[in-house]
Design a binder for these strands. Structure first.
Lengths: 234, 234
DNA sequence: TTATTAATTGTCCAAAAAACACTTATTACT
DNA sequence: AGTAATAAGTGTTTTTTGGACAATTAATAA
């Protein structure tokens, strides 16, 4: 087989920034590094790209190993290539971020990897440049969520408006007016009101809503001004 | 030195999608591939990541080799990793896109690489998955330009409102009302009206404007609704 | 002087966003 | 049984923004 000559071949890793929501706050799934050097330190879930594996396959494999999950929303974030980002050996990292509903998979999380959910505001020190990756992912999540109906990926199939609003508030770290919030969401026509209520979080109970799947898929890229005063989202 | 064992090391390339504007239409800078296999076919400018070079350094080096340019706006687009994207040998490609004012560098373009500007609508068949890269870059450029004042990177230091509008129209492939366009731009306070006029393109002449650099840097990420009816930008 | 060309500027109307407060359903307590 | 407490749900007004639209101006050429 012909090859390119005199070129450097480099390890290529995939690291996954896995966001989860538990109904209260946004969390990040971390694992304790299994490989030597910094072993036991908290880290993003990652692995090396295999010989016959492209990035989508690789990121899905890594996610599955850790969480047992398949078919989860995943998107490429950024490729990190600093020469010394991994002190063992030069490794390029292609990062993906995923969004999942924590409760749905609570019990599947593979214990073998010593995984744990951390509130996004209390993320421990991470190895290598993983901190930077997380920061970028948070920023991208905010950016995207400000205009696209992406946060539903973090919620269970049935959810209430107050839940949805608290998710938005948690991610944008601010408070919205519930009347305006509700009106804006209703106007997207993405929500279908259910007959039953969630009675966990209040006496009166809050109606459940489901996504209108068809419209959701169709309008996924459509632009929606979800966030009041988008201001300085980057 | 310690190394990771039993892992595949892969060639990592950087490919640059270089957009340019000549005052009339958006163009793409392409080169004729120098390496064997598909030699002579049109291709993005690219090269392999060197042993002690990170992506930013690499993309700057590649851009410089081809155009002589430095300090140009550049941004990472996406990492492409399909197993067979390069039939010679598996190669991962990290893509960057750059924006430049064609006239400013017209004479610097390195002839050694047989480079050529192609109108974005008449891009020839490209090697490998470069077509896909260009498509993604076009889409991202539109997306970003719809909300951020990024297109100034394609213009000379002094430009007129009609020029700016024709740039926007060319990129979004539509027509804007010049009164509304002007008002919207003025409202950003990013433009500083000059005393002199461009007399090339009309009898009356159009006033030049410059960017207010300070505000530009400060507001680079600020959200501005540049595009009427953003509709289905992805 | 008149016709032509492209630049410049302003008004009005419609739609969207934001500010704002009261009513309702339910439960717990006295 | 009555009342207090809690969170859900709902409408109206004002302000801001976006979009449609046309007349005037500066310069040149006929």
């Amino acid at each position: 087989m012909i090859k390119y000559h005199n070129q450097t071949r480099i390890l290529v890793a995939i690291d996954c920034i896995i966001f989860g929501f538990d109904g209260i706050e946004l969390k990040l799934l971390l694992v304790q590094r299994g490989l030597e050097y910094e072993k036991g330190k908290w880290s993003l879930m990652g692995g090396f790209v295999q010989k016959t594996e492209d990035f989508e396959k690789g990121s899905a494999r890594i996610l599955k190993e850790l969480t047992g999950l398949e078919g989860v929303y995943m998107e490429q974030l950024h490729a990190f290539g600093n020469v010394n980002r991994d002190p063992i050996e030069r490794t390029v990292s292609v990062t993906y971020f995923a969004l999942i509903d924590i409760h749905q998979y609570e019990k599947q999380i593979n214990t073998e990897f010593h995984a744990g959910w951390f509130p996004i505001k209390e993320v421990p020190k991470l190895i290598f440049d993983h901190q930077e990756m997380v920061e970028m992912a948070k920023q991208k999540l905010r950016y995207k969520a400000a205009f696209h109906p992406i946060l539903f990926e973090l919620l269970p199939e049935k959810f209430t408006l107050p839940q949805l609003q608290s998710l938005y508030e948690s991610i944008f770290d601010t408070q919205f007016d519930k009347r305006n919030f509700s009106r804006k969401l209703q106007s997207t026509k993405l929500l279908v009101k259910q007959k039953d209520k969630d009675r966990e979080s209040s006496k009166k109970g809050a109606y459940y809503y489901k996504l209108d799947k068809k419209r959701y898929e169709k309008n996924f890229h459509a632009f929606l001004n979800f966030i009041p005063n988008p201001g300085n989202i980057k």
